[in-house]
Design a protein around this nucleic acid. Sequence first.
DNA 1: CTACGTGCAAACAGTTTGCAGTGCG
DNA 2: CGCACTGCAAACTGTTTGCACGTAG
Lengths: 149, 149
Amino acid sequence: MPQLSTVFRKLEEGSKRLTPQRELVIRIFADHPGEHLSAEEVHHLVKKEFADIGLATVYRALELLTDLNILQRISFNDGKARYEFNQEELHRHHHLVCLRCGKVDEFNEDLLDPLEERIFQQRGFKVLDHELKLYGICKSCAKNARTRG
Amino acid sequence: MPQLSTVFRKLEEGSKRLTPQRELVIRIFADHPGEHLSAEEVHHLVKKEFADIGLATVYRALELLTDLNILQRISFNDGKARYEFNQEELHRHHHLVCLRCGKVDEFNEDLLDPLEERIFQQRGFKVLDHELKLYGICKSCAKNARTRG
DNA sequence: CTACGTGCAAACAGTTTGCAGTGCG
DNA sequence: CGCACTGCAAACTGTTTGCACGTAG
């Protein structure tokens, strides 16, 4: 979760402004740690405090913040993009997606480093980023299935 | 890559028919091993042999074949879904996506098994499937950058 | 004859873009 | 003043659906 001053510097470097709309979008993510918000969800949340913000503005803010590496765009294959703060420790930050209830949890793991090193040695492919998603059934869904069945 | 007889059995179980269109869609994947085709690409390829097949039919065939676990739907965050044969050894089958030229390569690795076991022990989350994507720069793009720069 | 399958066109959802107006730097 | 930024509506892309017709079982 970036400092506002960092955000401000990054914006200035590209002579971009920290408008109220953009600041609000950032605050929404600060207020919803660990969530993976879609553009529509962000729009909905921002609207509570800034009634007439346009959806396009939200999209443009999300794009800008993603370009500045303040946000990270991810997809869980449900047809819409989602966003979260671009954690520096992204390389150790993965997702557990429950196929039944849709809940997305996170976990940290550094076991990919040796693999990426080996891939570079063997194929010359330099890994810059990665994405590991584990799909399955979460604890509470498994319990419910047992109880009900 | 499934036997046609397997496909036929799976279709019969759901009283679905192996129409020429569906058979062609399957053949397209057989003829393009290792590729990750979008619906539009499949449509384009099928059209060469069956001129007036509709795009909707392709979508419906892809959905059906995915439901039957003959195909697997994947996404590389480029806004469109892609498909490939659902390899049984999927659990060892991951993707290297070049951020410069977009080429998608594959690699196999079984190092996730112990991790998944640990996640089940620690959190009760039962992993059924997973998706590992490594984003970076492929060998030839890295070489071109060096040559040109 | 019924249920499945098809092509076509229209509908849809998420996202992007063109444009006229606003206001910071 | 100039350029970044905005809201709105229209455009666009990938995908799904409704419908009338065809055909396999």
